[in-house]
């Protein structure tokens, strides 16, 4: 009888070896290819933003920033309370939790640009059940729209109201002939927010709002004592939104 146990084992051994060789071959081929960081990308240990509210302190000037940002990221303009926004204007009382019934006139009239604070201890990242929102090593709180299940827990957790949910198909409210074709739109059912322009930083460009601000906004590395943001923070009195909550916002306001 030719079908002995010995022969069977030999055959199995050969087959196993063949399988190993096959997978090793494909592993070798893949070992060559892989991702690297772009050489011209801007790098930092902790990105931060300083907004000079004396320079950009009206609805009109902030709208310029919002327009640049929302065009760069294909953010729809929805005229209901289910709207989406990444950066917008708000009054002193809306922006900061330090009410003053008898504040000075300048502060009463001034508008403040609000956006995601990219907190050092982001509550949104803490609560996300799928790591769809996560913190990058450079401090940017990013969103992975491919992974978001739309539970909106992050919206309840964010004390700054920085997040928007796509209640409906966003493309219904976008000018489809005037899209930024370098950036995607979103789909219905996911949460979105400001991404500190990671897509632009990766190509050595400053964030869209900073570029549009005529120098009123500064963006840089908070951990570098010689950076522009650190220089501004040394020279001016700045405040952050809701510091008592311990989230350590990365956006500073010159008052």
């Amino acid at each position: 009888m030719s079908h002995t146990r010995r022969n069977f084992l030999k055959f199995m051994g050969l087959a196993a070896a063949g399988l190993c060789a096959g997978s090793a071959g494909s592993a070798l081929a893949a070992a060559e290819a892989g991702p690297v960081r772009a050489a011209d990308a801007l790098k930092a240990k902790r990105w931060a933003m300083v907004i000079d509210t004396t320079k950009v302190g009206t609805k009109e000037t902030i709208d310029v920033l919002a327009k640049a940002c929302h065009h760069a990221h294909n953010v729809p303009d929805i005229p209901t309370k289910q709207n989406v926004k990444w950066i917008w204007a708000a009054s002193y009382d809306e922006a900061f939790d330090q009410p003053n019934d008898h504040g000075n006139d300048a502060m009463e009239k001034r508008e403040f640009a609000l956006l995601c604070n990219h907190c050092t201890h982001p509550p949104c990242v803490r609560v996300c059940p799928t790591q769809a929102t996560f913190q990058r090593p450079d401090g940017i709180v990013a969103m992975d729209y491919h992974r978001c299940i739309g539970c909106r827990y992050c919206m309840a957790a964010c004390p700054f109201g920085a997040r928007s949910f796509n209640f409906m198909e966003p493309r219904l409210y976008l000018d489809l002939n005037n899209l930024n074709k370098e950036f995607p739109t979103r789909m219905r059912g996911v949460v979105e927010k400001c991404n500190f322009c990671v897509d632009r930083l990766a190509h050595g460009k400053q964030p869209a709002c900073v570029e549009a601000s005529n120098g009123a906004l500064a963006f840089g590395d908070l951990s570098d004592p010689n950076s522009e943001v650190r220089k501004l923070l040394r020279e001016h009195y700045t405040i952050r939104r809701k510091p008592s909550l311990g989230t350590e916002p990365g956006v500073y306001y010159i008052i």
């Binding site: 081929a29 893949a30 060559e32 290819a33 991702p35 690297v36 450079d138 370098e182 950036f183 990766a202």
Partner: peptide, 21 residues
Amino acid sequence: LRDGKRVYVNSKGKEFEISLQ
């Protein structure tokens, strides 16, 4: 998106930007 590495080096050593669009 997640690792921030946006350049792909292919099996021949040629570089491409990692981007569908």
